[in-house]
Amino acid sequence: MFVVEGIGGILAQSTSLLADALDMFGDALVYGFSLIVLARSERWHARAALLKGFFMLAFGLAVLAEAGYKLWHPPTLEVVTMGTIGFLALFANLICFYLLYRHRSDNLNMSSTWLCSRNDLIANVGVLLAAAGSHLLASYWPDVVVGVVIAALFVSSASGVIRQAIRALNAPPPAPSPVTTKPVTIQMPIKAPRKS
């Protein structure tokens, strides 16, 4: 979906579609990393969450920069392409969201992964609203506004995930559970005295 949405975003000259495409690429990397660390320690979960946070932050800032560029170079949008690909992306993300929903409270790793999926659904709805608004108003402004809102959501979520991950990484490791040892009694077999 990242490839499909990325090509569609370039063809449609859509900020919101490109924002969602970049997010999908990050999610593909993030989901893979989340599966790799699934059976590892809490510190690995925190590292995975930190990586996700930085991905979300980078994508948010990239989309803000792209939206700023479009303010100076107004595009001609292809709203039909935006809407079609937006619906495809929404369907793909609904499947991911459904699969992740019951694991959203398992640990920091799964919680941050689910947060990425939730952001995707919001972004997909935003892309569809941008397509509809741009068509009705015959303007690129709805697309730029939705792109900026999606980017702000990425930056906000990223800062929260990064803070949680850093707290988890800086927390002292859990104290080992005390081991209680019981004295071991060794019983030697007693030989019966020999008869002479």
Rank of each mutant, 00 (worst) to 15 (best):
V80N: 11
Y98F: 11
A28L: 10
A58W: 10
V30W: 02
G26T: 05
N170L: 14
L51H: 06
L29T: 09
D120V: 02
L61H: 13
I150F: 01
F2K: 01
Q13F: 10
I7N: 04
K70M: 15
A28Q: 05
Y69G: 02
L129F: 13
S14H: 13
A46E: 03
A65V: 14
A165F: 07
L100H: 05
I122L: 10
A19P: 07
C116A: 12
S41G: 15
R102T: 12
A151S: 11
M56E: 12
A130T: 12
I36E: 10
L115V: 02
A151I: 12
A175T: 14
V30A: 03
R104P: 00
A89E: 05
N124D: 15
A12K: 00
T76N: 09
L51M: 09
L121N: 00
K52Q: 09
N124L: 09
R163F: 11
S16D: 04
I36S: 04
L99H: 07
L29I: 07
T185A: 13
T180H: 13
I95P: 00
I190K: 14
P172Q: 04
T113D: 07
H103E: 13
R118C: 00
G53N: 08
M1Q: 08
A168K: 02
Y101M: 10
Y31K: 04
L108P: 02
S134R: 08
A89Q: 03
D20I: 02
V37Q: 03
L88W: 09
K70L: 13
V79E: 03
R47C: 09
L18W: 06
E42T: 15
L153P: 01
L136A: 13
A89C: 11
S156K: 10
K195W: 09
V63A: 01
L51V: 10
W44P: 01
R102W: 04
I122Q: 02
V184D: 12
N109I: 03
A39I: 04
G26K: 02
I95G: 01
A158M: 06
L35R: 08
L71H: 08
P178E: 14
